[in-house]
Design a protein around this nucleic acid. Sequence first.
DNA 1: CTGTTAGCGCGTTCAA
DNA 2: TTGAACGCGCTAACAG
Lengths: 359, 359
Amino acid sequence: MAITLKDLARTLNLSVSTVNAALYNRKDISSATRKRVQDMARAINYHPNLVARSLKTRKTYVLGVIVPDLSRSFFAEVTKGIDMVASAQGYNLVLCNTGEDPSREEDQIATLISKRVDGLILASAHHPESAVAPKSLSLSGIPLVLVDRFFPGTNFVGADDVKIGYLATKHLIEQGYRRVAHLRGPNVSTAQGRLDGYLKALRESGIEMRKEYILEAQFHDESGGYKAAKKVLNISPRPEAVFAASDPIAIGALEALLESGCRVPEDVGVIGVGSHRYGRYLRIPLSTVDQNRIEIGKRAASLLLGLIENGTNRKKPRLILLDPKLIARESSRCRAEARESGGESLGASAPLRTVSRDE
Amino acid sequence: MAITLKDLARTLNLSVSTVNAALYNRKDISSATRKRVQDMARAINYHPNLVARSLKTRKTYVLGVIVPDLSRSFFAEVTKGIDMVASAQGYNLVLCNTGEDPSREEDQIATLISKRVDGLILASAHHPESAVAPKSLSLSGIPLVLVDRFFPGTNFVGADDVKIGYLATKHLIEQGYRRVAHLRGPNVSTAQGRLDGYLKALRESGIEMRKEYILEAQFHDESGGYKAAKKVLNISPRPEAVFAASDPIAIGALEALLESGCRVPEDVGVIGVGSHRYGRYLRIPLSTVDQNRIEIGKRAASLLLGLIENGTNRKKPRLILLDPKLIARESSRCRAEARESGGESLGASAPLRTVSRDE
DNA sequence: CTGTTAGCGCGTTCAA
DNA sequence: TTGAACGCGCTAACAG
């Protein structure tokens, strides 16, 4: 049985309120008693019961975080970012992995409401159009921040997907590729934004868009990129480059292209999105666009904590878009001399230290 | 202000205990009232206050999970495994990322004790010799399961590291490499086990171990593997193969070897540990040993839940070692004809579908 | 400076 | 079947 404040008070021959005040380091307690109390607390291994405290204070110092799949590096890193700022402010994370199952997402939200989390971060919300979950959430008054997938009318933190698509496509065009295909993601805001950016870059360069150059795959699935790239090879005129909406798609595409005897980047250029940690170690070091995942998590947590501490009576939902960064590697280096583009120097000869990930 | 049981009861003109029983679906309530109560609960968006319930029942249905770095795929996947079985049993996870900081680990444990988690999973415990944390834990009576790094006297779930080292080294030897170097991890049980397995395999094959063939690196750090491999190249006689204690180390080593003009696997064979998702897409598809990470998480959660539900008065700590699996790819294929060794077929021509990760 | 006490929302006797 | 009342451990008045 856990030791309670009352136990501690009895042991010290003090009242609970004195002991409590002493533990909180209030100044209206003699420093002598304060020390006595704190020493004794440590000695008998007293740990304040936070569930009782929460019941009283109506504050749990817990943030709910719902992600579809923690084993995707995107979500793992966003979660890490969230935890960095949350824990610095004394909050803990309760993490829910929906496994991409929309019905579980609803259950999880209900549970988190019941657990009285102080706020909630929802990554890649499912079918928010049905919006049943957000509805009970807003009724519960729990502040909510969406991450990754946008949904109008709610607080949102994510990468600027239009810019991602634009940067990637523009880069390919600048490298001398004209016929650029796009392996897009499924029908969510993220994929849509990247597609828009792709179209914008084409338009800006006076390149006509071709519907048959746009194929769909799953963000996290190499085999989708593989299949789509195989199809790309049969289109005539054959595309000279591929902008994949994610690194996994790009990796699958790379595999398909090489397997079919294409040279990358000479015959076909490839660029992905996500700045996967091992992108530079692939058969052909992969160009990519960095979303700044850790920062996404950090900003989401900051925003949420702001909402929590300043009360939710914020007028309008905030929308935070982070700036993506182009990382040019070998997979997109056509004939053009290497421009300065925020990337590293060429392939395998790059100094390896820079890749170490201490932050 | 959240709706309480009392609010609900008042709305229905019933007593709280009736309402409560109805919500719990007890049979001693007329099904008519039961339905009435449940409908009304939904209608007015009632969410039972679990913190109040926990205070009463002394059960939070929360498991603490402490990891050093969620952005390392090992921990992300173990955590995913934990969540799979925990959530199936109605438990939530509160996740703590120590960022490798031992002092934070202690703080986190203290917080989790105060939050009255029902159990705790500690991955890669820091300096357990000081053991201050486990001590307050056992005093608190919170069941504890260690994962990844072993520490005698506690429940443990992990891969069989000796077997990992043995499988990897044996494989290299079978492929015809005789002089095998080992890039070991830092001084923790995991690295020690793999080293032991390495030595065992050498012994068994009558190969003399050479101290200068054993170099140290950080598990998660490519640059460590890079540096160590550079050193390996200067040893004479030069090793013919490298068993790296992790995939990141192996990837760094691969980079160093190729950069120095070595051919892999012809001049030097390489094998890692961890079955990284992109190992097969690297410049040279990387042989590795799979630890079965998801399963580690699942077993850890099962064990912990068992301890929780059956009371902690278990006699002896349990020790669960999972069987690793060799995955042979190109980086370790010397001249020997491909043996059947649990791996896939050769390199880039392997059918890509098999890599999709639905499980 | 220190002690007493009334809830926070829920679960659970025990009576009715 | 249903209702009344106590207590889980802690916080925060308020009283001394």
